[in-house]
């Protein structure tokens, strides 16, 4: 039986990166989720770019999970046949991860945004101070972290 492109990709990932992948599965049509160990995302993204033409990055999502920050790289091949989500975690007290802008130049803005709003440091990406926050924003305050509250107090959802 001929495997679909997505199934072939999942097979290849499990075969070549068996020690680095925690989970890889096809969730529904056009959605593939892969969970990788810390530090493994660069090799996997480079492999996928060369082998499967996955060069389009949709965005990078950062999720504050309490003790860790999870980064999800949303990638798609050139013919946009499916959407691939690569998840990896960094600890919140030392949020450093290697950059991918040499592999996928389109990720520059997304890494800067995650750095500005969540405080994740991308090693190898020299970025100027603030991307979208104003110049007089205090140091060390990352608005999208769940424990950050605005100074004026938290409004309740008025119904």
């Amino acid at each position: 039986m001929e495997l679909s492109r997505e199934a072939q990709m999942v097979d290849d990932l499990k075969r070549y990166f068996a020690d680095k992948i925690i989970k890889a599965e096809i969730v529904r049509a056009r959605r593939v989720n892969v969970e990788v160990k810390a530090g493994a995302h660069r090799d996997i993204i480079k492999f996928l770019k060369n082998r499967y033409d996955i060069r389009h990055i949709v965005t990078i999502t950062g999720v504050d999970l309490g003790k860790d920050i999870e980064l999800i790289y949303h990638l798609s091949p050139d013919n946009r046949q499916w959407l691939l989500n690569i998840r990896t975690k960094v600890p919140k007290d030392n949020p450093k991860i290697e950059t991918i802008i040499d592999i996928l130049p389109g990720a520059i803005f997304y890494e800067r945004e995650v750095n500005d709003l969540l405080g994740v440091i991308f090693e190898g990406h020299e970025m100027p101070k603030h991307f979208i926050l104003p110049d007089d924003w205090p140091e060390g305050e990352y608005p999208l972290r769940k424990d950050w509250k605005p100074k004026e107090g938290v409004p309740s959802a008025r119904v």
């Binding site: 709003l117 603030h130 991307f131 979208i132 926050l133 104003p134 608005p143 999208l144 605005p150 938290v154 409004p155 309740s156 959802a157 119904v159």
Partner: peptide, 20 residues
Amino acid sequence: RLGNVHRGIEKGMEFRTWVQ
């Protein structure tokens, strides 16, 4: 230099219901 239109919508959604 971006940031003139940054309003903090993503954080604002945390205080709102699904319909709001």
